[in-house]
């Protein structure tokens, strides 16, 4: 490869990560300063959306993993039905 991309530099990737974490913190802190117009009681909890997004995603990943435990097959599983009978 002739030249390295700036994303190939681990230092830059570290900086991106730090920026991402700062952004995460900012979105939560912003909840203090903005009227969030909650539709439901549960939304009044501080940082509800952040926590809810994080936890539900963990649950979805774990749930998918659990399903995959039973339903995963090698990707040649259906190779039999490509022939013409």
């Amino acid at each position: 490869m002739k030249h390295r991309h700036w994303l190939d530099d681990q230092g830059n990737v570290q900086t991106l990560w730090r920026g991402f974490l700062v952004l995460l913190a900012l979105t939560v802190v912003a909840g203090f300063f903005v009227d969030m117009h909650p539709h439901f009681e549960i939304e009044r909890w501080f940082g509800f959306n952040a926590a809810y997004g994080f936890v539900t995603c963990l649950l979805m990943i774990v749930g998918a993993k659990f399903m995959g435990f039973f339903l995963k097959r090698p990707d040649s599983h259906y190779s039999g039905d490509q022939r013409d009978e």
Partner: peptide
């Protein structure tokens, strides 16, 4: 502002996950 922040919280923390 509320909608933008709500959505960003949901999405960015999903990204963290």
């Amino acid at each position: 502002a509320a909608h933008v922040i709500t959505q960003l919280q949901l999405l960015l923390f999903s990204g963290l996950a």
